[in-house]
């Protein structure tokens, strides 16, 4: 009976693993092998050993991309999670009216296609004809074309991503908040805890698993940033928004160096795994 129940459970999860194996694990393994070859896509790959990885070590643009990716992802994770948590706390509070409306409104950017969002933001950021410039002009503030200045372009991309995804993470945080017992919060208040202390000592510890999930998810998504630079800046100006995935795209699909691109993507994969592990251990340690 027990074995039969276990078999049913495995049978139910089998479709996922079958599809994952076929369309994900296979290509992942294949691209690992391709990372040791020189391959232009159609002609057969020729093995080159570790040469692609060695070349990466001396590739200045790869390190630029790596640096950009790390700091932009870090900034994105910090802002997106802080904003999402604040939003979730506001949506969960007793004084908030029209909660349903706000939940939908904040989630809406996530449903927009990336291209539509990019066109909107091109016009928001555009020099003196941009929405931002026009809004700030009456205050006497002049802003440059944000996407054309290497000092501002990365921030502009991060801001756009935060705008698109904060609502999504806020919904997850909200679900976590609603799972925290209201009696626990009430008890803390009765014991004389201020609202800030309730959040600090009751709500936030209770949200730790959800926070871990959101932080890891947003980190992975931040490290894989591609859509924004691809559509808005093509990695410029002057490589200031060149991310690792953008670098991989250029090497693979524009220069047809697919083996080299595979090697770069594996470095990114290792990086993502390492960062995720560090985050996991860090949050677990702090939870103790």
């Amino acid at each position: 009976m027990r074995a039969r129940r276990a078999a049913t459970a495995y049978l139910l999860i089998l479709p996922f693993f079958a599809v994952f194996g076929l369309f994900w694990a296979g290509p992942i393994a294949a691209s690992f092998l391709y990372s040791f070859t020189e391959w232009r896509g159609i002609t057969p790959p020729s093995p080159v050993g570790l040469r692609n990885y060695e070349n990466l070590l001396y590739d200045e643009r790869f390190f630029t991309a790596l640096g950009n990716t790390l700091w932009m992802a870090g900034l994105y994770v910090a802002i997106a999670n802080t904003a999402a948590l604040s939003l979730a706390l506001a949506l969960d509070s007793g004084w908030m009216r029209l909660r349903q409306f706000f939940r939908t409104a904040f989630f809406l950017p996530m449903t927009l296609s990336m291209v539509v969002a990019a066109v909107i933001f091109q016009l928001v950021y555009a020099g003196d004809i941009g929405l931002l410039a026009k809004l700030l002009a009456p205050l006497g503030i002049e802003i440059p074309a944000l996407l054309r200045d290497p000092a501002t372009a990365p921030y502009a991309l991060v801001a756009m991503r935060v705008w698109r995804t904060t609502g999504y993470y806020a919904i997850i945080y909200l679900a976590g908040l609603q799972a925290i017992s209201s009696e626990l919060r009430e008890a803390a208040r009765l014991d004389g805890a201020s609202e800030l202390n309730v959040i600090r000592h009751v709500v936030l510890p209770g949200l730790k698993p959800v926070a871990l999930f959101c932080i890891v998810l947003s980190t992975v998504s931040g490290l894989e940033m591609f859509d924004e630079p691809m559509v808005l800046t093509q990695g410029g100006p002057g490589d200031s928004t060149l991310t690792v995935v953008m670098f991989v795209y250029q090497q693979g699909f524009q220069f047809l160096q697919l083996g080299y691109a595979a090697a770069a993507s594996y470095v990114l994969t290792v990086l993502i795994v390492l960062v995720s592990l560090v985050q996991r251990f860090w949050l677990r340690e702090r939870g103790r």
Partner: peptide, 21 residues
């Protein structure tokens, strides 16, 4: 053959030039 490589490299230099670098 790899014209996009030429375009991207030139694009970087044009950006640096217009940025006053």
């Amino acid at each position: 053959a790899d014209w996009p490589r030429v375009q991207i490299e030139m694009g970087r230099q044009i950006d640096a030039m217009f940025q006053g670098q």
